[in-house]
Design a protein around this nucleic acid. Structure first.
Ligand SMILES: [Zn+2]
Ligand SMILES: [Zn+2]
Ligand SMILES: [Zn+2]
Ligand SMILES: [Zn+2]
Lengths: 136, 136
DNA sequence: TATTGACTCTATAGTAACTACAGAGTTTAA
DNA sequence: TTAAACTCTGTAGTTACTATAGAGTCAATA
């Protein structure tokens, strides 16, 4: 059994993050020491690494909670897992599309200034202001 | 002079958002009515639309605050504006790269499940668990 | 004129996933 | 024994809003 500091080292998560996951019901220490310190075993390490891997895929804590509970009840159907992953993929792709569009606009904006000028004649601010007048 | 509800309609921002921008020092009503209602003029409308346009470029409120203050002092140099926009572009591009990478992993993960199975044999969960064992 | 409904005010809490304390108690090693 | 290092709980801060509650204001109608 290890204490929270060692779990943090092993997993690469911070102590505060581990406590946070406990509050969010993703990972609970089943035991406490005499002095009330959280004690973790090997299964806890694996569970935390699972969580960490899912987070690196940008899955939300709610989604991970769901995956963990499916993982804990092996007779449930795959469909729920599939659907979540698919929705998540869609969301990521939408965000990529948005950011790509955004990037174009920002680059055009950046080109409209040649530096070394005062803001008075700055193409960037001029453009931002003109966009306003058009909308208005 | 118009009240906040009309400014909200004109700009497409919510009333709460406009009040929020005031708290964040981006847009202040210079006048209040006898009954303490915020009163806005044409310059305020333009300022809010400027803010809205910048937000659509994903600039943070802090960045917009900076742009507004540069806009208000026309003799300042362009360099600050340029640098901010460039950093913002870099950040957006980094995020796009991250998400693209993420998307690949998620798609591979999705392919590892053929649905209609119980979670016990689900390729997705299997893969997620294996990734853990490797790291561990 | 009284009242109703729409509008506005301030202040506070919630969102997501942490991060950063403060103040107290515990353990370990010198 | 005492100091350093660790851990505990609880609370507040981060971003850009959103959503209330409870009170006050205003315009139009009965
Ligand atoms: Zn998701
Ligand atoms: Zn410029
Ligand atoms: Zn930025
Ligand atoms: Zn499956």
């Amino acid at each position: 059994m290890i204490k929270i500091g060692e779990l943090a080292k092993i997993s690469g998560c911070s102590v505060e993050t581990i406590r946070h996951y406990e509050k969010e019901q993703l990972l609970a220490a089943k035991l406490r020491s005499d002095g009330n310190f959280r004690l973790y075993d090997h299964a806890d390490i694996e569970r935390l690494l699972f969580i960490k891997h899912c987070r690196s895929l940008d899955l939300s804590l709610a989604e991970i909670r769901q995956l963990l509970s499916l993982n804990d009840s092996p007779m449930s159907q795959c469909d729920d897992v599939n659907q979540m992953i698919e929705q998540h993929i869609e969301q990521v792709e939408r965000r990529i599309a948005d950011l790509t569009q955004l990037n174009k606009q920002l680059k055009a904006l950046r080109l409209s200034c040649n530096s070394k000028r005062t803001v008075e004649h700055c193409g960037i601010l001029k453009q931002l202001n003109e966009a306003v007048s058009q909308t208005n």
